[in-house]
Design a protein around this nucleic acid. Structure first.
Lengths: 210, 210
DNA sequence: GACAAACACGAGCAATCGCTCGTATTCTCG
DNA sequence: CGAGAATACGAGCGATTGCTCGTGTTTGTC
């Protein structure tokens, strides 16, 4: 789907060839590196193009601006994360697990994903993203929050809808905030930090869902 | 102290007059507004000067660059926060309080401070600040973390130093992450969010220091 | 009142950014 | 093969940014 949503068909949306699809992947990969190296705000489209080994003109044949690159990356991340989560709950009823086990199955893949894709947190783990980035990552945020809300609703059906909403927002925020700490740690320290993140989430959920 | 730390005395550091001190305060106030309106990265020194009603040249007589403005603001915030916390614990032994009461005394003033100074979170509540900003807010971060570490050490003396370190870092991060949610809410919802933030902190600390 | 230091101005420089556009090459498909 | 679409290039435009500098004004001190 990568950047094919045409609201008002200004441009006829070119039919991509295999080469073009490859280029898009290369650009997203390069963008991820640049976002990690320079941060999203300081990242420039020219730097992304250079990192990808192409000219600025070529880049703009696939993405109309920096936010759209972020949008493409966010879509890629959302898909990867969804797949990982699906695998973690493959044929398992979330209700049959202890809270500790549930949290572990949620957090551990997320940790692994963050370690494997350090650019993820430059898009997702921001408390006050600039407007353009917020728009680009909205679908990613939505899909993550929906999964969280579904789990909370399943585990605490007695909660009023807006209470459940608050709980899932806070829980998501706890994960969002602790993930950079886990990723920043290395060696043994990382697993200890991950354990701490899980403990925080378990403790909060236990308290909030009675 | 506002921007008087001269490591290598390149410039003789002018002796400020009353008018200059006033200007510095005006500039910091203007910067706070601009940071809130545009975000730190998008904020420009020219915009700060215009907001303060002075010329760019005048601004640069007090601050050498944007990061130094952030540094000045961070110092101001650190002082205000320290004062608020001191008042909250005025003549009270933290050990004599229940954990709920302790957390309330820490969080409520912080919430009030965040509401009163919306620029605070543009400097502090960031998961991956650009290098310049990180340097500018380092003293602020340090002073906050030191207070957190002291409380954790007092309440959980049996914890090994590096375990205590981890707990205070995670606890601080939880506050950092939930504060924007609280501030963003309005009316009754804000107090409910604040309650949720307190609950998360209490639950985590109980589990981690139990 | 005179002199120096502090304060204030604002046009504009040098650098950078996002992005365009004219042109050349490669692919697809009849 | 030949035509049209997709891909690729990169110099450079218009706009913006952080910051400077020459000049004039106010303040404090003797």
């Amino acid at each position: 789907m990568t950047s094919s949503d045409e609201t008002s068909a200004g441009a006829p949306a070119p039919r991509r060839q295999a080469r073009g699809q490859r280029r898009i992947e290369e650009i997203l990969g390069a963008a991820a590196q640049v976002f990690v190296r320079d941060g999203y705000d300081a990242a420039t489209t020219n730097a992304v193009a250079k990192e990808a080994g192409i000219s600025p003109g070529s880049l703009y044949q696939y993405f109309r601006n920096k936010d759209e690159i972020a949008h493409g990356l966010a879509e890629r991340f959302a898909a990867g994360l969804a797949e990982l989560q699906a695998a973690a709950f493959d044929g398992v009823d979330p209700l049959s697990l202890t809270l500790e086990e549930l949290v572990r199955r949620v957090i551990d893949p997320v940790v692994a994903f963050n370690v494997a894709h350090p650019a993820f947190k430059t898009l997702f783990a921001r408390t006050d993203p600039p407007p353009g980035l917020a728009e680009a990552t909205a679908p990613l945020d939505a899909s993550i929050h929906e999964r969280a809300a579904r789990l909370v609703a399943a585990r605490a059906p007695h909660l009023a809808p807006d209470d459940a909403q608050r709980v899932s927002v806070v829980a998501t925020q706890i994960v969002r905030a602790t993930m950079p700490l886990v990723v920043a740690a290395s060696g043994d320290e990382r697993e200890r930090m991950a354990a701490e993140a899980r403990a925080a989430l378990v403790a909060y959920l236990r308290a909030a869902t009675g």
